[in-house]
Structure formats: C-alpha cells, structure tokens
C-alpha cells in the first residue's frame, strides 16, 4: 500500500505461471482426466497459443485460469501471476481478462455502459470514467457510439467493444478463447491484429486457444498442441 498507486495506474507487468496442472472431469461417477501435470509460463507481452481438437479441454483450461471452472471439473495445480498465487482467489480478484468466440456484450446495457462495467470501481470520478469510455471508443473506432444498443452494432464492432471492455478492467493477463472464429476472413485478420497489438501494448501475458493454424502463426509466440503428451 506504500506505492503511490493512483487509480488508473498501469500495474507492473508480471508473467502468468501455471504449475503442475491436472484437470479431470467427473460426470455421473466417471472421472476422465483431460491433462496431467502441465506447466507453462508466459511473459508479459508474449502470446502463447494452445491448439487442439474440440473437447480436449482447452476451454476448460482457460476457465480454470480465470476461476470460472464449472463445479463438475476437478483441478489440481497452481496459477500464479508473478509471485502472487491466485489459485484459490475468486475470479473477480484474479484480474484475468477473458474473451470468447461470442462477444458477450451485456444485452441490457448500452455500449458505453458495457465499457463502464469493465472500469474498476476504484476510478470514482464520473468525469474520469466517462473519459476512459470515450478514449476506449475512439481506440475501437466507435466514437459517439456510447449510447447505442449493442444489438445494433456489426459483429466486428461488437468484438472490438468486447476487447476494450476487457482492457478497461485492467487485467494482469489475457485469455483468448477462439475469439476470431465467428468472424469472416477479412474481418478476422484485422481484428486479430487489433487484439494482438493491444495485448502487446499493455504488456499482458496472453494465452490464445484456437484450432486455426493461421491464428497461431500470427500470434508469433510459443505454440502448444493438445492433448499434451
């Protein structure tokens, strides 16, 4: 608490570390192990890609890291951000941003309110929150869209809002669960660049899950194939 941590200050980037991870699914008494004793370290600004067929546990891995794993999974191992062990922290205290295939913009909130939901409550002043929203919209090329209904936006626009919402929540790491797979190829490439640029600019350790080799290549980082040996 001694550091002068102004609201809105960028946190010191730290690596995302996974240690000794074992994940199994228990349903109706049968336990199926998805992977065992998995280790991984992603440095700030680095994008690691995991590839694999559906049902191999990629998404579950992301859920485990973010702390939103469904109750019928059984997980052992540690998740750390630098020195900080967040394995047993509730999701809202992990500061791990997550993006899905669907944008998952809250349908009952406006575009601006969606972005505002991401800004930490520590940013108290209304003006400041408003400014952050405006800046984010501008960065996404959507200036003046604050009061719009998200349902009226195009797929690409919504995807960019979702990214900005995640970044506004000041994550310490970023998890991408096939965020491009719903976009057509032209849009896909532009959006990929948009996300990767922002992840690097914010110096975030980033983990991408995909089954598209093109995505993996353009991430320009470590590529792992599931199921792990």
């Amino acid at each position: 608490m001694t550091t002068n941590q102004r609201p809105g200050a960028v946190q010191i980037p730290e690596p995302l570390i996974l240690q000794d991870l074992t994940l199994s699914l228990c349903s109706s008494g049968i336990t199926k192990t998805l992977f065992k004793k998995f280790d991984l370290e992603i440095q700030p600004g680095e994008i690691t890609t995991i590839m694999g067929p559906s049902g191999c546990g990629k998404s579950s891995l992301l859920s485990f890291i973010s702390g939103t794993l469904a109750k019928d999974f059984n997980a052992v191992g540690r998740v750390c951000l630098g020195q900080r062990d967040i394995t047993s922290s509730p999701p809202e205290q992990r500061h791990i941003g997550m993006l899905f295939q669907e944008d998952l913009l809250f349908p009952h909130l406006s575009v601006g309110e969606n972005l505002g939901f991401g800004i930490p409550a520590a940013v108290r002043q209304k003006n400041q929150r408003k400014m952050l929203i405006e800046e984010a919209l501008e960065e996404a090329g959507l200036s003046g869209y604050a009061d719009q209904d998200p349902a009226t936006l195009s797929g690409g626009q919504r995807a960019r809002v979702a990214v900005m919402r995640t970044l506004l929540s000041r994550p310490s790491a970023l998890l991408l669960d096939e965020p491009f797979s719903k976009l057509d190829s032209a849009l896909r490439e532009r959006f990929r660049t948009f996300i990767f640029e922002h992840a690097r600019a914010h110096n975030l350790p980033t983990l991408l899950v995909t089954h598209d080799p093109e995505d993996a290549r353009s991430a320009e980082g470590l590529i792992l194939n599931m199921p792990f040996k």
Binding site: S63, S66, G67, T68, P90, P91, E92, Q93, R94, H95, I96, G97, M98, F100, L104, F106, F117, G118, P120, A121, R165, T166, S169, P171
Partner: peptide, 9 residues
C-alpha cells in the same frame, strides 16, 4: 462469468 472476470463480485 465474464462479469466476474471484469472484476465484479
């Protein structure tokens, strides 16, 4: 879940 990831209790 995404609300949690965005820091909501």
């Amino acid at each position: 879940n995404i609300a949690h990831c965005l820091g909501a209790s």
